[in-house]
Nucleic acid binder design. Structure first.
Length: 284
DNA sequence: CTATGGCCCTGGTTGC
DNA sequence: TGCAACCAGGGCCATA
């Protein structure tokens, strides 16, 4: 599923094909992708604008638009589970799952989304959507000291907390499991009971995992995620626990487990990631 | 404050 | 073999 590394890859690869382009027109094949905005209003807002900049915040691709050199709103694209963003040659067939198309002065931007969970929003003010997100895990705000005090301030299970975008923005199910394993922390561990040296390990593991995944252009373990050039990422080959239930831990050889935490499939090594006494609730 | 469960969607997998 | 039931999963919302 597109998480921070996949979205970062999409933003990086699509940037040179998008920045400087002018939006000539477009169409909307699935209205709800717009998140409530009328297609007519949406198209009127973007037609005639020029793409000034492409960047990423959390799991969203943000496209800054301008008109006659002045700010003219933003596109906020959330891929959710199956969303894709690509620039294709004009006139090419985007297939049955294309939900939004924007014709550029060179090529056409397609938003493709099999399950229709993704969003392709236009907003004058992006903070309307981006406000409330936690810090970027690869940004300067995210320090070991910050993580320590924020973990202590709450009494939540580590896994759901790290998935909470208001706490920390950009991690999803895959990279939380991988980071917790690298930090040797159990997903059911309570946040306020993590020892200081484990906090530091978790902080380092989150950054290292995300950086390594970006380097490999993200993970493609199913048919969904592809880079805008159609390539799969390759970080799935580095997975230590995600999707490896029943197979030996690459660190210690114990059998990797799959449990459910907060309705999410959760993968861990029971030997590397000891469950502290009294941690969490539920089975396993 | 924290947790739970439903909802949105569809393709792929499982079970009979 | 055929088909229905079920599942995954990010974010959001209502409820406990």
């Amino acid at each position: 599923m597109p998480e921070l590394p996949e979205v970062e890859t999409v933003a990086r690869l699509i940037r040179p094909r998008l920045e400087g382009r002018r939006i000539r027109g477009g169409w909307v094949g699935w209205e709800r992708s717009l998140g409530g905005m009328e297609p007519e209003a949406f198209l009127a807002a973007v037609e005639g604008t020029r793409v000034a900049r492409v960047w990423r915040r959390a799991k969203q691709v943000v496209v800054d638009l301008e008109r006659r050199g002045r700010p003219a709103g933003h596109l906020l694209v959330h891929l959710r589970m199956t969303g894709r963003l690509q620039v294709d040659p004009a006139g090419s067939d985007p297939g049955p799952y294309a939900r939004v198309g924007l014709e550029l002065d060179r090529g056409v931007l397609h938003f493709i989304d099999v399950r229709k969970f993704g969003r392709f929003l236009f907003r004058e003010d992006p903070s309307e959507v981006l406000a409330g997100l936690g810090p970027e895990p690869l940004g300067e705000e995210f320090t070991a000291a910050w993580l320590g005090s924020e973990l202590r301030r709450r009494r939540r299970l580590l896994k759901p907390l790290l998935l909470d975008q208001a706490f920390l923005a950009g991690l999803g199910n895959i990279y939380v499991d991988e980071a917790l394993h690298a930090a040797r922390l159990h997903p059911l561990q309570r946040s306020d009971r993590v020892r200081p040296e484990r906090v530091r390990a978790l902080w380092a593991a989150i950054r290292a995992t995300l950086e390594a995944a970006i380097e490999r252009e993200g993970s493609s373990f199913d048919t969904f995620y592809r880079t805008p050039e159609g390539r799969p990422g390759s970080y799935q080959h580095q997975f230590q626990v995600y999707g490896r239930q029943g197979r030996p831990c690459r660190t210690c050889g114990a059998t990797v487990q799959r449990i459910v935490v907060g309705q999410r499939g959760t993968h861990l090594c029971p030997r590397c990631q000891r469950r502290p006494r009294g941690a969490g609730a539920g089975p396993a």
